[in-house]
Design a protein around this nucleic acid. Structure first.
Length: 209
DNA sequence: AACCGGATCGTCT
DNA sequence: GACGATCCGGTTG
């Protein structure tokens, strides 16, 4: 018997991040179905992660991160993009895994239609990057806090049938995280997957002194 | 291929 | 009032 997904996600956030590689997110939003197979994720939270939104305590935006695992944490960045996270860790402890990239396995035409412009992009790059991934799925703030493990949700998580071979899982620094959290090797991706986003070091934050 | 600036607004100080 | 867990398109080499 496979372990229950909620139980898996309640464990250490780094284990959850690795376990999410190869999982599928299925969205049924606006009457359309799109599914993405995850190829790249980043862990946030734990307890003393200065790169996590939850680091400075619970706020209205981050409250779902402090709740039970398996729910969607959706946030808005740069005035135009939505990003999707899976809440992890036990109830009461803030942690989440940012879904950074994946392969569109169902609904490619719908995913393309949701892109801003009609620019030619290879199928592998359609959901390459957290904001692109969310856009493909049609995810917005509407899905904040939905239960990803409830069969009735418009956004569902289906864990992989079998764990990936460990030599297929690579780790490295997180993207877009500066300051004290920059060195955490909490990014996980599938070695051979072409949808993995391009790595770009976080812009150096000016230090006083 | 690499670099640069613009877009655009919720959230917290 | 500043700045972000980003992406895109233009320009330069």
């Amino acid at each position: 018997m496979a372990e229950q997904p909620r139980q898996v996600l309640a464990g250490p956030v780094l284990s959850s991040a690795a376990a999410l590689l190869g999982a599928r997110i299925i969205s049924q939003i606006d009457g359309q179905t799109v599914a993405v197979r995850l190829s790249e994720v980043e862990a946030y939270g734990g307890t003393r992660d200065p790169g996590a939104h939850s680091f400075k305590g619970k706020t209205a935006r981050t409250s779902v991160m402090f709740g039970p695992p398996g729910f969607a944490y959706v946030y808005f960045v740069y005035g135009m993009h939505w990003c999707l996270n899976v809440v992890c860790g036990p109830d009461g402890q803030a942690a989440a895994v940012l879904l950074r990239a994946g392969q569109v396995v169902v609904g490619e035409q719908v995913a393309r239609a949701r892109r801003p412009a009609h620019r030619a992009v290879s199928a592998a790059k359609l959901a390459s990057g957290p904001a692109r991934l969310a856009a493909c799925l049609g995810v917005t703030g509407q899905q904040y806090g939905v239960d990803l493990l409830d069969p009735g949700s418009p956004l569902r998580l289906q864990m992989p049938e079998a764990a990936l071979p460990s030599d297929q899982i690579l780790t490295g620094p997180r993207v877009g995280v500066g300051g004290a959290g920059a060195d955490y090797p909490w990014r996980y991706w599938i070695a051979t997957d072409p949808s993995v986003s391009a790595y770009r070091p976080a812009p150096a934050r000016p230090r006083k002194g």
